[in-house]
């Protein structure tokens, strides 16, 4: 496939069947390989969408500084887009994110401001909002509340999925900013009203939920509960176990958040199989495992891996 530039190559990712993990020829699992994007994650779609929307609205001109709270992938995608389009980038990132993400960001020339580990991305959002108020000349796309995030999936990921899998019955993705689920979910529902949209939410360990009080909780402005059929909480043990199964059974080397989505997808597949129904279940492989090697998630026993990623933002 030929493209005029790296930016033009964002999206158009393969959808691959998982014949070993699928329970039968009637209940099939399909993986959308978003790690095949230019910087290796689904967030390239979002980064390009956010920047192009800001350009169209006249909020960004060459030389401007972009500020964004991110746990990593959105930042890396933005860093690539910013480099190619001539913007500066400052990422606010929780300090408990993997070293690889920081190295990649620095390589692209982005500046990193660390936010406290306790509180996870909530803190990054809070710090970024503070900085944005202090520096009105910086442009904050704000992935958690910017419709361009969900629209990147509404115009890209959703149509690609439906074209490749017209018989789709379920769509499963990790829940973070909620952009993937909102965008793909809305698109698929418009074309297949009976499709089930299922969120798989990473359940971290206690440090990440270290709020001072419940009023400091956070629900992304993009989140619209009515788009979802249901929502599962998946802990580190199951996410790690499924990430390893995906590699062992199907050869796909994915990041840990993919194990989270696969866990939910396998639960749906088992239920459909037991009920004698047919199903085509597609889920998102958000990124590859490369950026998480230093966490120790891929070595030793599952229990050891679980201990090693304790306190980390693994999705």
């Amino acid at each position: 496939m030929r493209y005029d530039s790296l930016l033009d190559s964002v999206g158009h990712t393969p959808l691959v069947g998982l014949p070993t993990l699928s329970p039968s020829s009637e209940v099939r699992l399909w993986a959308k390989l978003e790690d095949r994007n230019p910087t290796g994650s689904v967030k390239d779609r979002v980064a390009l969408g956010l920047v192009e929307a800001a350009e169209k609205e006249g909020r960004l001109k060459p030389g401007d500084t972009i500020l964004e709270p991110t746990s990593g992938n959105t930042g890396i995608g933005l860093a690539m887009v910013a480099k190619l389009k001539g913007y500066k980038l400052i990422c606010v990132m929780p300090e408990n994110t993997s070293e690889e993400r920081r190295q990649i960001l620095r390589m692209y020339g982005a500046e990193i401001i660390s936010s406290p580990a306790a509180g996870g991305s909530n803190e990054a959002v809070r710090v970024a909002k503070g900085l944005a108020a202090e520096h009105p000349d910086w442009v904050m796309p704000y992935q958690y509340g910017n419709p361009a995030n969900a629209l990147a999936h509404y115009h890209g990921t959703g149509p690609e999925l439906l074209a490749d899998l017209p018989t789709i019955t379920h769509f499963v993705a990790g829940l973070g900013t909620t952009g993937t689920l909102m965008g793909v979910g809305r698109y698929l529902r418009e074309h297949k009203p009976d499709v089930r949209i299922v969120a798989a939410e990473p359940r971290y360990d206690e440090l990440i939920y270290g709020l001072r009080n419940l009023d400091e909780g956070f629900v992304p402005e993009l989140y619209d509960e009515s788009v979802l059929t249901t929502r599962y909480s998946v802990g580190a043990h199951d996410a790690l176990r499924r990430t390893r199964e995906l590699l062992a059974a199907e050869g796909v080397f994915a990041g840990i958040s993919t194990g989270c989505a696969l866990h939910a997808a396998l639960g749906i597949a088992r239920k459909a199989f037991e009920a004698g129904q047919s199903a085509d279940i597609a889920f998102i492989v958000a990124d590859g495992g490369w950026k998480y090697l230093s966490t120790g998630a891929y070595e030793g026993t599952l229990d050891e891996a679980e201990d090693r990623i304790e306190g980390q933002l693994w999705a």
């Binding site: 991305s121 990790g174 900013t177 400091e216 992304p220």
Partner: peptide, 10 residues
């Protein structure tokens, strides 16, 4: 039953 505060992902 599990109770958790809503936190940001992404």
């Amino acid at each position: 039953v599990t109770v958790l505060p809503a936190v940001a992902g992404g």
